[in-house]
Design a protein around this nucleic acid. Structure first.
Lengths: 341, 341
DNA sequence: CTTGGCACTCCGGTCAGCCGAGTGCCAACC
DNA sequence: GGTTGGCACTCGGCTGACCGGAGTGCCAAG
């Protein structure tokens, strides 16, 4: 069957090109991979593959290089999922198990991912929106000054200072504390917000419970603060050094993107794509300047909820099977850890 | 006086080289800068400067380039402090005034510094060691589970979970809370640690106050956690793109260093150097691989205490007067903000 | 459909030659 | 003594010619 062999040729081209970074020719191909045909035959297949847009040649009389479309086919149909070695699995487990808090989990994940894949790793902090309120604490720091601490089911803790106009007795503080907790604990963020808002009558702005209003306002603000949704950790930028030549065309735009967390979030993919492992290759992405970079990402979170996403960013010419395996493995372990917490 | 003119020549060489990135020759020098002498004279001066090690030529019959020693002299003796424009000052003020908490201040500072200098900016979070304890809060999250919140004078908040073996009544909790607060509030970290340790008799490991012991242990750990001392924010890595050619020799090692926060801390300089603005040029630094990068850094903090350091990292061929002015200006504004908090 | 043969293309490296910027030195000048 | 113009010399970088090798496309035969 010639159709089958053609795909085998494409796979071989992708693998060779990824390994050597050089356009691959028909002769080298038959030597390295054990396809039992002659170079001439492969040439015919290559011509066909080129007609269909899967490969291209940098210049006449050079070897072939996969196009984005070629990588796409490779990822969708040809990539055998390369399982992690048990040693790697163990490494993932031990490194992540040592984490002490949420920030630590995220930081370790970034490191791990970038080391496993030798690419730039990106991990989004678990978003607030799906999590529930575990506890609210109100502390009198000083006269006229309260500290409000918001603890969420993901383990995230947000704290805010509140300046108030009057002093509070210990009893009043206790009342306030239980009031807001009754309204918010156990609720999902959105519901907690409406619950809290209900505590403050809108028609009575300046009253005895101006303090309550101020605290509620701060809590609502902390909950709906999209700044926290945008939090992201990046690691492994040093791996960009391996890009080699095309500095201006590939490294510079990526380096710029890494500082624009909004851009990164968009790259990681909308949360709506859920848990699925997604691969975005070159021009498929939303940014013209990043046409020569690919993204491998997936959602993660406790249970089957995808609270956030993590993944890696690298050149289109990357080891897709390896990257996909690493991303998926790390996402699984992180999710498990969030489950336990 | 010929000695004076020599220094003028050195200054001109540094300025020209920084501006153009090309070895500067005698002819171009007299044209650009209005020294009223002939190229031949300048050549004599250049020969002398080269003998003394301040400049060098990449190859025979090329222009001159400053050596590290040349930059050193320039920074120490020749650099006129370039004051910030009022527009820049206003920009600094408005950007930093918008910050909502300590993290935000640090993040904004990094951005600001990297934009002002077009270099990589590094800001160390205010260290714990010199700060005092403002408040400790103990919260019952769930049975057998406490949240301990530590609030420091720098505005930093650390929280830890504590698993305890028994349940606690509301009264016991209140007692515990006031106990630890009495021992720690107002004290400098080191003293707070000994104060807290004093609450737990060492010879009575398993007793009624195992809970107290656990809480104290957690607090002490949080206070002496050097992980927090190492926290650092980095920004403006995209500016590395402007390094141009020497990718391997300059960009790669720096990119690697930026991920090693320990290395960065060392680069910023020991806290003992205090508030002073320090400039470390090329080989003067502790790292062989970073021989072609310079660091401009200074301490900052509320009052006259240098709680932490901030600065920029760039190629030895950089605009020292501009960088120094920017670093100093940002440090001042950040310190002022910490004063207010 | 596969294969070997063959002419053709074009990249990349090497080498010679030239131009120009810059230097060092020297003799003359203030 | 310091300064200046003149002059021969050096050397890097650019240009253009040349060549080898890897690879291709096509064709005719198996």
């Amino acid at each position: 069957m010639q159709e089958e062999r053609r795909l085998a040729v494409l796979r071989a081209i992708v693998e060779d090109y990824v390994a050597t970074d050089e356009p691959v020719g028909s002769k080298a191909l038959v030597e390295r991979h054990g396809l039992g045909v002659s170079p001439a035959t492969v040439r015919n297949d290559m011509a066909a593959l080129e007609d269909e847009g899967y490969i291209t040649q940098p210049h006449t009389s050079a070897g072939r290089v996969p196009t984005d479309k070629g990588y796409r086919l490779f990822v969708d149909k040809l990539a055998s999922v390369k399982p992690m070695s048990t040693a790697e699995k163990r490494a993932i487990a031990t490194i992540l198990d040592g984490a002490v808090d949420l920030d630590d989990v995220v930081n370790r994940s970034v490191r791990l991912l970038s080391q496993l894949t030798r690419q730039v790793a990106v991990v989004q902090y678990p978003t607030l929106s799906r999590s529930t309120v575990r506890h609210v604490e109100v502390i009198a720091l000083a006269p006229y000054r309260l500290l409000v601490v918001l603890i969420l089911s993901t383990g995230r803790v947000e704290q805010r200072l509140v300046e108030i106009s009057g002093d509070l007795s210990e009893d009043e503080l206790t009342d306030l504390r239980s009031l807001v907790n009754r309204a918010a604990v156990g609720e999902i963020i959105a519901d907690a917000v409406t619950g809290l808002r209900g505590l403050v009558p809108t028609d009575q702005p300046e009253g005895a419970n101006a303090t309550t209003a101020a605290v509620v306002e701060t809590l609502v603000e902390a909950m709906s603060d999209h700044r926290s949704d945008e939090r992201i950790a990046v690691g492994g930028a040093a791996n960009l050094a391996r890009y080699g030549d095309n500095f201006d065309s590939a490294v510079r735009p990526l380096l710029e993107a890494l500082e624009e967390h909004v851009v990164l979030l968009k790259l990681l993919g909308e949360a709506t794509t859920g848990e699925m492992l997604t691969v975005r290759i070159g021009h498929e992405g939303p940014y013209q300047e990043l046409a020569s970079t690919s993204v491998v990402a997936t959602g993660y979170g406790p249970g089957d909820e995808a609270l956030a996403r993590l993944g890696i960013v690298g050149p289109t010419r990357m080891d897709y099977p390896g990257s996909m395996a690493a991303v998926r493995a790390v996402a699984r372990y992180v999710s498990r850890i969030l489950d336990e917490a």
